[in-house]
Design a protein around this nucleic acid. Structure first.
Length: 430
RNA sequence: UCCUCCGUAGCUCAAUGGUAGAGCAAUCGGCUGUUAACCGAUAGGUUGUAGGUUCAAGUCCUACCGGGGGAGCCA
């Protein structure tokens, strides 16, 4: 008999099917037993009744334990009391893989324990919902750029030097040399965009910062588009279109998962463009009016970012920052030399920066000067300077932090639940 | 690196300086519709580690170890 996925159960009502999955809970009431079974595509309550099966089959219930795997022959039946709308009447079943004393119980657990058991925690209802939404976010982001004719050109993960001198990178042995794990694909994107006009890369990036907050991982995923002949306003529009596209997809395809996570769905549904475009100058004024102690030139701290975003019900753009607090390769604002044409997107509800990006420096002489100023080696950046020497154009792009975006959309408190196996400063396992 | 909090049964927690206990999980039994099912029973402990104070330490003190939250840092 061919196995049927639970997502297709409605098509098989009244017909005998084979279900393979895991028992995530069980209840027993004498002559009737209930097995809650998950197969990855859905869940269903299976009924084992003493009056419907032989004693031999009925007694197999003794072998059933939490998270054992089972193969069940049964008949799906419409059932109003069930969340999925169906139940499965068991005709016969077998336990395939035993599961003795499954560590994760039905009651609450502490973070340390759950993270140590991340390989099993992934099976839990909320964790499954989060990772399904993560999948949806990634799929939507890729579709968005693919639909616009972007070419996916991935950047290397081993890199010879720092993209920015200041940041902490993971150093690894590379035969007789040192290499670093990439913290961004952007510099390589800038090469690829001169070949293809509009490109994106998607992959993991690494930060060796000793950050220890709910917004930080040492390994996380970014999708980074780069576009030739784009200006900062077009850049913001692209970010906004992408964000709305991702939101729409998640709301269309993963409403059930959002409900499982008790997300305020109406809040997400109400998000429409255009998102406010707030200049750094104005943000300083707004924060001062709110009683924050900020001086022009300061980078905003996380609490200040939160205060600012609390003023809005959609994501906002922050743009035109003091050049000093932004990376060396950012284009200066022609209308105010103190500013660089960077633009970040901040998510509402205190989730903070989910996108960072901006206009790249296009003039070879200015870029060479900046590299010197930063104390970086011109040799290391020769290829990067070449991009300006041979047919430079105005260009820009941005990077979307996948896990931060997922944390916001799912309403998850901590980013570590938004990646299958989180890597944080004190956690490398499992 | 700094601030702060927490380490007690497999898990989540309780225990006024005076005999370490409950719920869940496990095991056994009961129940024909359960929804974190319920009811009864059984088993489960070097209280993170090492010192110290005390007649007496899970509880107080010191150090260390492990972790949480935050700051700094952070496309």
């Amino acid at each position: 008999m061919k196995r049927v996925w639970l997502e297709d159960i409605a098509k098989h009502e009244g017909k005998e099917i084979k279900l393979v999955g895991w028992v995530f809970n069980k209840r027993s009431s004498g002559k009737i037993k209930f097995l809650l079974v998950r197969d990855g595509s859905g869940v269903v309550q299976c009924i084992l009744s003493k009056f419907d099966v032989s004693e031999e089959i009925f007694n197999k219930y003794q072998d059933v334990s939490i998270e054992c795997s089972v193969e069940i022959i049964g008949v799906p039946r419409k059932e109003e009391r069930s969340l999925s709308g169906y139940e499965l009447d068991i005709k016969d079943f077998n336990v395939i893989g035993k599961s003795e004393e499954y560590p994760i119980g039905k009651k609450e657990h502490g973070v340390d324990f759950l993270l140590n058991n991340r390989h099993l925690w992934l099976r839990s209802t909320k964790q499954r919902a989060i990772l399904k939404i993560r999948h949806e976010v990634i799929r939507a982001a890729r579709d968005f750029f693919n639909n616009l004719g972007f070419i996916n050109v991935d950047a290397p993960i081993f890199t010879p030097n720092a993209c920015e001198g200041t940041t902490t990178l993971f150093e690894v042995d590379y035969f007789d040399n040192k290499a670093f794990l990439s913290q961004s694909g952007q510099l390589y994107n800038e090469a690829a965009v001169m070949a293809h006009g509009k490109v994106y890369c998607f992959g993991p990036v690494f930060r060796a910062e000793k950050s220890k907050t709910r917004r930080h991982l040492t390994e996380f995923w970014q999708i980074e588009p780069e576009i030739a002949y784009i200006n900062i306003d077009e850049n913001m529009q692209l970010q906004e279109d992408m964000t709305l596209f991702i939101l729409k997809r998640v709301l269309e395809n993963r409403e059930q998962e959002l409900k499982v996570l008790e997300r305020d769905i109406d809040f997400l549904k109400a998000i429409k463009g255009p998102f406010p475009r707030v200049k750094y100058d104005d943000a300083v004024k707004i924060l001062k009016d709110l009683g924050e102690e900020v001086e022009w030139g300061d980078d905003f701290g996380a609490p200040q970012e939160t205060k600012l975003t609390e003023q809005y019900k959609t994501p906002i753009f922050l743009h035109r920052f003091p050049a000093k607090i932004k990376p060396f390769y950012m284009q200066r604002d022609p209308e105010d030399e103190r500013l660089s044409l960077g633009v970040d997107m901040l998510a509402p509800e205190g989730y903070g920066e989910i996108i960072g990006g901006g206009q790249r420096m296009e003039d070879p002489i200015a870029l060479r000067e900046k590299i010197k100023e930063e104390g970086l080696s011109e040799d290391d950046f020769k290829w990067f300077l070449d991009l300006r020497e041979y047919g430079t154009v105005p260009h820009g792009g941005f990077g979307l932090g996948i896990e931060r975006c997922v944390a916001w959309i799912t309403g998850t408190q901590h980013i570590r639940e938004c990646i299958p196996f989180p890597r944080t400063i004190y956690r490398l396992e499992p």
